[in-house]
Design a protein around this nucleic acid. Structure first.
Lengths: 186, 186
DNA sequence: GTATTGTTGTACCGAACGGTACAACTAAAG
DNA sequence: CTTTAGTTGTACCGTTCGGTACAACAATAC
């Protein structure tokens, strides 16, 4: 076997950052080759499906991260409040305290959504379901658990957009703190 | 004077819809000529600055609509609660009950934001300021008025993204109803 | 009628797009 | 050293991109 010069795993985070900055449609192959340092040859060697496969790989990577660092703790933490607390801290960390936007959310807005519909749908759905279950275990009744979970997940998205529009990450962290209060047992 | 065959005012709403569907980067001139029915000649006659000027015109149009239908009622309504109620109804109408995404929000996410920074910043800032003032007139103290205004504006954005990700507009309308409850006097 | 002004379609530009083909190379296995 | 599989750079493909030039047109003013 020949030695691997690069690996998909090394490239995906770079791709993610590019898609975050330019959106899926706006991310050109020339920008991708420049930032990854890989020629088209290598790029299409790792992603024979081209840009679409890169987008899918990035979404999968994000999904894995959240599954491991957010959904699973939410599901398996013995103390549901601890799981929720963990979620908020991981989320703030992931979005770099509001300086980073949500790739899935950005893909969800324009017609990019059609190509990645299941991944985008699944990401938000899994988040809401996991949070809803934790809230319910923490004493919220069914209706309120569901509503609060939706409000928190959507609220995080909105706060990212808002903070970015004002070029002020603190708007995100402050909003998250208030969302966290919504999850405290009444 | 020669007769006007078309007017900027007739074209802008079509442009808005195209930008909503494809994003700014993803909206191609060929799609624009197709949907507007105008050749490049006419297009560049009305928008000598090209796509950038089209984007600016669309943002201005949205800003005007919100100024007239949301911010002004919020500011001038004698009963602040009535102004806020008006805001929510106008907002739901504007976003077609969750079937339409927010153009400004979509522009805010990728590097399109850099070109239209002031317009995007101004849109959200004006909204928060107007809502905050109304809440304060309605009895909210300063801190709580500001926080609630931010939560509502960001919450609407997030609900639009979330609803679209799940392809379920009702997620938007339900979220808005809950946001509206947050604005009810304690 | 003619002149004027505003509007339009078409042909065209160079550049960049996403994607393909393939020969050259690297490094480990034998 | 030779083989073999994995990786890379480069040249190239047809298409589409945003944008320009301009002649032809329509409608009003005179």
């Amino acid at each position: 076997m020949a030695r691997k010069f690069s690996e998909r795993g090394d490239i995906v985070p770079v791709l993610a950052e590019i898609f975050r900055e330019h959106g899926f449609a706006g991310a050109s192959l020339s920008e991708i080759t420049r930032r990854t340092g890989l020629g088209k040859g290598s790029l299409y060697h790792f992603f024979p499906g081209g840009k679409d496969e890169m987008g899918q790989a990035v979404l999968d990577d994000v999904a894995n991260w959240f599954e491991l660092n957010v959904f699973k703790p939410l599901r398996e933490s013995e103390d549901p409040a601890a799981g929720i607390d963990h979620m908020f801290r991981a989320t703030v960390r992931f979005f770099n305290s509001g300086r980073r936007i949500c790739l899935v959310g950005s893909f969800a807005l324009d017609d990019t959504r059609d190509r990645f519909a299941t991944a985008i749908h699944g990401y938000f759905a899994a988040w809401v379901v996991a949070l809803e279950a934790a809230l319910r275990r923490g004493g919220f009744d069914g209706r309120r658990a569901r509503d609060t979970a939706e409000d928190v997940v959507a609220g995080i998205q909105g706060a990212l957009v808002f903070a970015r529009s004002q070029d002020d990450p603190r708007l995100f962290t402050r909003a998250v703190r208030r969302l966290q209060q919504m999850t405290a047992p009444a």
